[in-house]
Amino acid sequence: MRRAAPLALLAALGAAPLAAQDSAPCGGDFGTFLQGVEAEAVASGIDPATASAFVAGLGPDPEVIAADRRQGVFQLDFLTFSRRLISQDRIDRGRAMADRHATTFDRIEAEYGVPRGVLLAFWAFETDYGAVQGDFGTLDALATLAHDCRRPELFRPQLVAAAELFAMGEIDHATTGAWAGEIGQVQMLPADILENGRDGDGDGRIDLKGSAPDALMSGGAMLQALGWRADEPWLVEVTVPDGLDWASTGLNHPRPVANWAAAGVAARDGALPGGGPGTGLEARLLLPQGRNGPAFLAYPNFDVYFEWNQSFVYVTTAAYFATRLMGAPIYLAGDPDPGLSGEQMIALQEKLVARGHDVGGVDGILGERTREAVQVEQQRLGLPADAWPTPALLGAL
C-alpha cells in the first residue's frame, strides 16, 4: 500500500478498527535498529555527524501503530464510502479552490497533463484542501513504521529518504504530518518529495505544508512520474445492457473501447472517449457493487490511482470525485444486491483462500484480488460473474 488512510478521510468516515492483528515489532531492539538506519544513511552519502543527529532524536510512537491498525474504513462499500466523503459543500469548495489557484492548475495541465479535478480530489481527500495535515511527528512516525513488522519494506526506504531531507534542511524533528509519515497538503512521502518536490510559487523553496502552489505542482509532477497520460480520461460513468457478459467485467479484463460500445455499453453523458476508430484506447468495465449498481469504464490513467493508494474503494471514489469536480452528474446508484458485513467478508475470504485464491490477505476488505477470486467462483457456481460478493455466494461456498 503506497499510502494509508488520509487523516481527513478518517475524520469524515469515523474509522473503525480492523480485525485484531499481532502488533509486536519485528525490528528487534529499537536502538540497534537505529544504528542500522544511521549506517544506511551514511552509505547513501549523508555526512556521519548529520546521520547521527538524525537518528538521535527518533523514538517509537505507539499512537502511530494504533492508527496503522485502524483502517477499517476501507471495509465500506463504494456507495456508502463515496456518499460519506463527497458532499455538495466539498464540491463547492473544490471549485472555489480551482478558481483561486487557476494559474497554478493551468501550469500543471500544461507541464504534466494532469487535469485540475484529479488533483483537487486528492487535495480534498488527503487534507480537506490543506486544513487537516496531521500533528504526528513525521520522523518518529516513519521510524516507528520502518521498525514495525507490517510494512518495513515500504517505510525503511522512506526513513532513509527523510534523512536526506533532514540533511538538506527541509525537515527536522519538529516536522509534523500524517501518522504514516506523509507531509503537506497533498500528503507526500519523503522519497516522493525528493523526486517530485516543486517550487510552485517561485519563492525559492519547496513548502508543501504552507504553499498550495508548491503542494499542487509537486502532486502534478508525482502523478506524471507515476505514469499519468495527458489528454486521456480516467473514469467515465456508463450504462450497460442487461444481457452483458458479466465475466468480461473487472479491472483484469481490458478491451478496446470500441468493443465495449459494440456490446451496448454507452456513456451516460455524451460519447464514449476513445471509442472512435484508430484511437487504440482500452478500458475495463468497473462495477463497484455488481451489475445492479453504478457502472464505469476505467481507462489506463485509472491505474495511476493505485500507485497513490491501493484501496479499491478509495481509488474508485477519488476518481469518481474528480469527474464530479469536472462537471459530471451524480452517479446512477441503481439497486445493488445486498453485500456482506465485515465479518461475512472475512468468512468469504477464508473460504476463497481455502480454494487456493490469493486475496491479498484476510482483512474483511473487498479489494481487487478478492473481487477477482469472487468472479472466478461465481462463474464456477453458475452465478452472474459481476465480482460483487453477496450472502448467496457466501452460502453457496
Rank of each mutant, 00 (worst) to 15 (best):
R150E: 08
W246S: 05
I183M: 06
Q158R: 04
D214Q: 04
A12W: 03
R93D: 10
A8L: 02
W228E: 05
N301S: 01
A51V: 07
G72H: 02
A298D: 07
F306G: 00
D29A: 15
Q349V: 08
G210K: 03
F122Y: 14
A141F: 10
P329V: 04
G243Y: 04
G220Q: 12
R284V: 09
A102W: 10
G45I: 11
L79W: 02
N259F: 07
L366V: 00
A295R: 13
D172G: 15
G200W: 04
Y129L: 05
F321V: 02
G200T: 10
L286S: 06
A396P: 10
P233T: 01
V160K: 11
P25N: 10
S82C: 12
A295T: 12
A161C: 12
P288W: 01
R100Y: 03
L142G: 03
G327Y: 10
L348T: 08
I86K: 01
V359C: 01
A24W: 11
I86D: 01
V265P: 13
A39W: 05
L208C: 09
A271G: 00
D199L: 07
P115A: 07
A131T: 15
R205Y: 05
E170Y: 06
Q35A: 13
A146K: 03
A221N: 14
A110K: 15
G36W: 06
F81K: 00
G290Q: 06
A396E: 13
N252E: 12
P17M: 02
D386A: 11
L145M: 10
W246K: 07
M345Y: 04
V37N: 05
A143S: 10
L154K: 11
A43D: 07
D303F: 06
S218C: 14
A212K: 01
E307G: 14
V315M: 04
D68M: 14
G14K: 05
G227L: 03
L285G: 05
V186D: 02
A16G: 12
V257R: 02
R3G: 14
F33G: 02
A258Y: 04
P329D: 09
P256H: 06
K351R: 15
N196D: 13
L235C: 11
A396G: 09
L235I: 14
A178F: 02
V304L: 01
D68H: 12
I65H: 04
T249G: 08
F155S: 00
L216S: 07
T323W: 00
T370Y: 02
E153R: 13
A333E: 14
A266C: 13
E232Y: 07
N301G: 00
A143M: 10
T176M: 13
D68Y: 12
A347S: 14
E237P: 00
L165K: 08
L251M: 15
E350A: 09
E282F: 09
A347M: 08
A124L: 09
L119H: 06
D68F: 13
Q75W: 02
Q344T: 03
A110C: 07
T127F: 08
A298F: 05
G227D: 04
R268C: 09
R291P: 09
R324L: 15
I206D: 09
H357D: 08
G204M: 08
T323V: 00
N301Y: 03
V186Q: 04
Y112M: 11
P273H: 00
L58G: 00
L159I: 11
P336H: 01
D337C: 06
W260T: 02
D337K: 14
G342F: 05
L189K: 00
M345T: 14
Y112E: 08
